[in-house]
Design a protein around this nucleic acid. Structure first.
Length: 414
RNA sequence: GUGGCUGUAGCUCAGUUGGUAGAGCACCUGGUUGUGGCCCAGGUGGCCGUGGGUUCAAGUCCCAUCAGUCACCCCA
């Protein structure tokens, strides 16, 4: 038997209905904020991600599905949506007639070659939002509030928001130097193995280490909020003001680090304690240098992505829609008539299914019961002859004989 | 890439110190020759993940392998 490959999943009902619900809710909520849908390719040139996400990131270095096409060009299955969205924004010159801001959302599968575990698949799904072209702090705040609005609409209003600022292209390098100097003063042998490596490769990550001893050692580490430039300080305050006014609960997490190189200034994350170790259900932030780094105009951007697998872990699975009617046929003569009648009812807006073979009445009624149909429509020999249908209300058990011609009106009235 | 745990019916799982494979749910049929749910009776369904080894005998013990899962790491 051919089986699916590791880290890839079939999304079956009722889980698939939950995904549809998330997508539909996202589309509805985001449109309230002026966002339009963007649909992007799943494959891009490898270089897009290498330059967009950062050559040194784990995602690029060891997690991408990369392979040559038939002409030897290196292609990559997208590991996230932002780089592709920025590429589309530049390539289609959406900045030309957009006024001050271009608001887009997209959703779909992403691919990362990682060891699967709870909340982490190799093919996973994100709902992604990008707002290009404006440096306004109020836009950062709006994006965060919109994420909160969306989560509330899908029934998740108890999640924790964490917000931080990572500084800008000017002040972050200075801070990183300060941090590196501080880390160099720590006793090397007392740091965990990972942190010894991260000290050089990704110093911000050391602040995020979960090992207790590392936490102690870095307790007095210099904080970016004290070392960033006045522009970044003002920006961060201007982001928090409207969020405070909105009543959205959040914490400032000065150790909140994003793994993708492009983030600047505002970053945020939504975490849940109920879904295992992969606790981050959404994350995002501002990326003011990304568009120019991909050879577009020097315009800023802000956005976020939600992990649909992780949200689905928090949502009850939504049941498939229930049909209104089920056709019971008692002999072969009713079979073709039942389909014809069912088509009439469907065109009249009623949903339902027909029996596909004339098995015993008991068996057909059992089948009808399983579909949760509200009515059974019974077509036997006598009904076919008199051009009527026996309609049984499955809840009350009562049954009436209705002329075929009146069937749609009769059912629609109930 | 590293580690832990688990692989027995469609699903959830029992299976004693090794002795020829079980339950519940689901499914099918009947109890009502044209009427569901509840109940009752019966039934279908397993290379016990795969390969090798030990043994008179392996679901059970040993080795390997594959798969799943959780965690590290990383991220949404």
């Amino acid at each position: 038997m051919i089986k699916k490959i590791k880290g890839f999943a079939d999304l079956l009902p009722p889980v698939s209905n939950t995904y549809a619900f998330m997508e539909q809710t996202a589309a509805r909520v985001f449109s309230l904020y002026g966002y339009d849908e963007l649909r992007l390719p799943v494959l891009e040139r490898t270089e897009l991600f290498a330059r967009g996400i950062g050559e040194e990131t784990d995602v690029v270095q060891k997690e991408m599905y990369t392979f040559p096409d038939r002409k030897g060009r290196s292609l990559t299955m997208r590991p996230e949506a932002t780089a592709g969205a920025v590429r589309a924004y530049i390539e289609n010159k959406l900045y030309a007639d957009a006024g001050s801001v271009t608001k887009l959302y997209t959703y779909g599968p992403m691919f990362r070659y990682e060891r699967p575990q709870k909340g982490r698949m190799r093919q996973f799904h994100q709902i992604d939002v990008e707002a290009f072209g404006s440096p306004a702090a109020i836009l950062d705040a709006e994006v965060i509030l919109m994420l909160g609005h969306f989560l509330t609409e899908i029934g998740l209003d108890k999640l924790s928001f964490e917000i931080n600022s990572l500084g800008c292209r000017d002040c972050r390098p200075i801070y990183l130097k300060t941090l590196a100097d501080f880390l160099a003063t720590l006793p090397e042998e007392e740091l965990c193995e990972d942190c010894r490596r991260r000290k050089a490769s990704n110093p911000l990550r050391v602040l995020d280490c979960k090992v207790p001893r590392c936490k102690e050692l870095t307790a007095d580490a210099p904080q970016l909020s004290e070392h960033c430039c006045s522009g970044c300080k003002d920006h961060f305050a201007a982001v928090l003001d409207p969020i405070n006014a909105s009543g959205l609960a959040y914490t400032i997490n000065p150790r909140l680090v994003r793994g993708l190189d492009y983030y600047t200034r505002t970053t945020f994350e939504v975490v849940s304690g109920d879904i295992g170790s992969q606790s981050s259900v959404a994350g995002g932030g501002r990326y003011d240098g990304l568009i120019s780094a991909l050879e577009g105009p020097d315009l800023p951007g802000v956005g976020f992505a939600c992990g649909m697998e992780r949200l689905a872990l928090l949502l009850q699975d939504i049941k498939p829609v229930q049909p209104d009617f089920f056709f019971v046929v008692l002999d072969g003569s009713g079979l073709s008539a039942s389909l014809e009648l069912a088509q009439t009812l469907r065109r009249a807006g009623l949903s339902g299914v027909t029996a596909l073979e004339a098995k015993s009445a008991k068996s057909q009624f059992r089948q009808a019961d399983k579909t949760n149909a509200r009515f059974c429509l019974i077509l036997g020999e006598s009904e076919c002859e008199s051009r009527t249908v026996a309609v049984k209300n499955m809840e009350s058990g009562q049954q009436e004989t209705i002329p075929m011609a009146d069937l749609a009106d009769y059912l629609n009235a109930r």
